[in-house]
């Protein structure tokens, strides 16, 4: 079954006397059990899209189905089986981690021993045991993010939406968070739809990606599809012995004391030419395309 099917989704907001179209006919499909990433520059419509998919924003037009249910007609049923975690999370300020989880657990209809057990599992999974008595307004950003993730799992959802889950975290904490998300995905078998600004995160976690710009999906596919599409961004760097200042080699340019070959298919030609001129090559490095390069290219 498809976890998410969105067809021609449109959404606009009223800004003073004008309407601003934020989503201009988005279509996408997410398979159950996969981690799907929505990437794109600021203002591209990522949060709007994730809010529509999670039933807290109504689209102007288009069809959206989550686990086969319509987001408008079956919103309440969908809410039983989904959950959300946002970057820069906010919860009830004077409630502790445990109390916040209890409140949300109860709001999902869970109670008694079952809820207690689930809270303990999540406090342990997200390494929040030592913060169980800490009030939300006294937590560090990293702890708040972990609590947000714990809250997003309280009802054992089938689909979890993570809206920029590592925003504002230190690199080491962000990496740990990503590992936790991966572990949760493996252990709980949950479908994850995440938006992110960090291409390393998308590369590490996502099986499939959509690139959004100005409310339109500009590219969709696996990380390797994205890279293949922009294979022309690959280049090779050749380090040689001696001065290269006077070398004039076709298809190669001087870059930081090295020769840079942008057309990889001509690399052999360039190496042959260098050898024929008696230049000794120290090493050749191929700089593969990274998702970040694709992101920059697509954002232009």
């Amino acid at each position: 079954m498809k976890a998410i099917e969105a067809e021609e989704v449109r959404k606009s907001y009223k800004v003073f006397f004008r309407r601003k179209e934020v989503l201009k006919g988005i279509s996408l499909e997410v398979e159950e059990g996969e981690i799907y990433g929505i990437i794109g520059p600021n203002g591209s419509g990522k949060t709007t899209l994730i809010s529509i998919l999670s039933t807290i924003l109504k689209p102007d037009s288009g069809n959206v189905r989550v686990l086969g249910m319509d987001v408008e007609k079956d919103a309440k049923k969908i809410r039983e089986v989904i959950n959300i975690s946002s970057g820069n999370p906010n919860f009830l300020w004077s409630l502790t981690a445990e109390e916040n989880l209890k409140y949300f657990g109860m709001a999902y209809g869970i109670g008694g021993e079952e809820l207690k057990k689930r809270i303990e599992e999540l406090l342990s999974l997200l390494e929040l045991e030592e913060h169980r008595e800490t009030r939300f307004d006294e937590m560090s950003t990293g702890t708040k993010q972990r609590l947000s993730l714990a809250k997003a799992l309280i009802n054992r959802p089938r689909v979890v939406f993570l809206d920029e889950p590592t925003t504002g975290l230190d690199p080491d904490i962000a990496l740990k968070m990503r590992e936790t998300i991966k572990r949760i995905h493996e252990e709980e078998g949950v479908t994850i739809v995440l938006t992110t600004h960090y291409m390393k995160e998308a590369e590490m976690l996502c099986e499939k990606l959509s690139f959004l710009r100005n409310g339109v999906v500009e590219l969709e596919g696996t990380v390797s599809d994205f890279k293949t599409k922009f294979k022309n961004l690959e280049y090779a760097l050749i380090r040689v012995e001696g001065s290269i200042e006077e070398l004039k080699i076709p298809h190669a340019v001087l870059s930081d004391g090295k020769l840079r070959v942008d057309e990889i298919e001509r690399l052999g030609e360039v190496i042959e030419l260098l050898s024929s001129k008696g230049v000794r090559i120290k090493d050749v490095k191929i700089r593969e395309v990274e998702l970040e390069d694709v992101f920059i290219q697509l954002s232009k």
């Binding site: 809010s51 999670s54 039933t55 807290i56 309440k76 049923k77 809410r79 039983e80 989904i82 959950n83 959300i84 946002s86 999370p89 906010n90 919860f91 009830l92 949300f104 709001a107 999902y108 209809g109 809250k151």
Partner: peptide, 9 residues
């Protein structure tokens, strides 16, 4: 955190 309340069933 009102959206978190409204996303509950």
């Amino acid at each position: 955190c009102i959206k978190h309340t409204f996303i509950t069933p």
